[in-house]
Every structure is written in structure tokens, then in C-alpha cells.
Amino acid sequence: MGKYWAYFKLSLQTILEYRGDMVIYTLNNGAMPLVGLLIWLAAASGGAKLAIAAPDLIVYFLLAAWVNIVVFSWGSWYVYEIIDKGDFYKYLIKPFSLAWGFAAENGAQQVLKTVVISAVILIIAVVLSRSYPLHLRVTPLSLLLFLPSLVMTGLIVFYIELCLGLTAFWVYDIDFLTNTYNMLNQLLSGRLIPLVFLPAGLASASTFMPFRYTLSFPIEVLLNKVGGYEELLGFMIQIIWLGATFVLYRLLYQQGAKNYQGFGG
């Protein structure tokens, strides 16, 4: 474990050295939920009778921007580059796990991004609170349940990203897969549309799809938007998706490593 901690600290130092990059990455991750918020606020100010009031929409999207950054992973590109450049052999001969190594590097970036985005969101919230009565309706229990849900959300995103990257063992370019996943995720995770706005059938189906558990679910838990049976079902489905993505990662890794043909002189 010590080597990963050392790698985490090394990654932290590297990121601190290139702070500009990190700020731009943070803006990129936070942009979409904020654009989503502005679009829905424009709709609300145009007289739309939304299922969520404007102040609650603001709270939702600010939390979405925050969660989006906290759980963000760029594992697909990390793994793709390693396989594509023929560097995967290093992980076959060294006692250094691909997933843990990436977790250390990604984690270091997330720590700093979280600090930046928390400050940005706080400023936006203060500015918007002049025009809208913002309330964060959180109870000690919802906060307690939010934390494990957030951790599981982070792990699901982490393993999905790794799985997408591992497909590079079999395909030349993973753009098609990652783009398709990202587009579906953009719409069905709650990044642009709170799931309550989806058509009834799709909203019900989203309960069983993985996308909800990559963003929306922990926010719903924190804001007490789900409760009782629905909340329990949500946690069970989230655990199932976590298990499924982990098993898929292991399978892809093992099969890929067997098929892997490194190149180089």
C-alpha cells in the first residue's frame, strides 16, 4: 500500500506544478451541469411550471457539478494510452497494479479539483442566493447515507472507465465506445436533466440503468428525494452495479492480459 501512497504524493506534486491544467480540467468537469442549470433557469423564467422549483433546481445542479468532479475518472484514456503505446508489459512484470496506480493518480487530481470546485460553487451559491432563496434540506441521516452512496458512485465510475479503456486490447480506437457512453450518461445520469423531468417510462427504466448511480442517486439521497422502499432499492441496485462493473473489469483485464501482444525493440 505504501507504494501507492508514495505515487499519490508524487502525483499531487506533479499536479501542483501544473496548476493551470488542473483549473481548466475542473472547469471542464463543472461546465455541463452549470450549463444545464442555466438552461432550466431560462425555462423557469420563461413561465415554465417545472416539477422542481427554481431554488431547488439551483441546489440540485450545484450539487451535481460538485459530485461530478468528486467522482470524475479519466481511466478510459489512461488505460487506452498504456495499451496503445505498448506500455502494458510494465504491469505484467512489476508488482504494481494498474487499477491502484491509476486510483492514486486520479485520486490526487480529485483532491485538488474538489477544493477548487467547492470554492467556485460556494461563490456561485452566494451570488445566486441574492435572487433565489436557497436551502440545503439535509438531515443527519441523509448525510450519513449520502457518504457511502457517494463512495459507491465514485467506484462505479472508476470501474466503468477502466472497462472502457481495457477494450483497447481488442479495438484500435475506443472513441466510439467512450463517446457513446458519455452521451448516454450525459442525459440519463441527471447531469443535464434532473431524472424527475424524464418521461415516466424512461424515468422508471433509469432506476435500473447504471447511469443514475454515476451521479444522481447520491444527490437524491442527500436531498431526501428518495426514501423508504425506493431508497433501499436504490442502494441495492447501486451495490449490484458496483459488483457488476468490478467483475467486468476483472474479466476484461484477465482476458486482455492473455491476448496482449506488446511491441517494441
Partner: peptide, 26 residues
């Protein structure tokens, strides 16, 4: 395929917004 799919999803997004309102910022 990705480009077409992304367009379908954007149309879907626009459709959902306009199921709640008649106009956005004019």
C-alpha cells in the same frame, strides 16, 4: 454512428425541455 446518436440525444433533450415550456429565452 456516434454523431447521429448524439444528435438524437440532443433532440431528445430539447424535446424534454419543451415538454415543460413553450419558449426558452425567446
Amino acid at each position: 454512428v456516434t454523431s447521429t446518436l448524439s444528435l438524437i440525444l440532443v433532440i431528445f433533450f430539447v424535446d424534454i425541455i419543451f415538454s415543460q415550456t413553450n419558449n426558452i429565452a425567446g
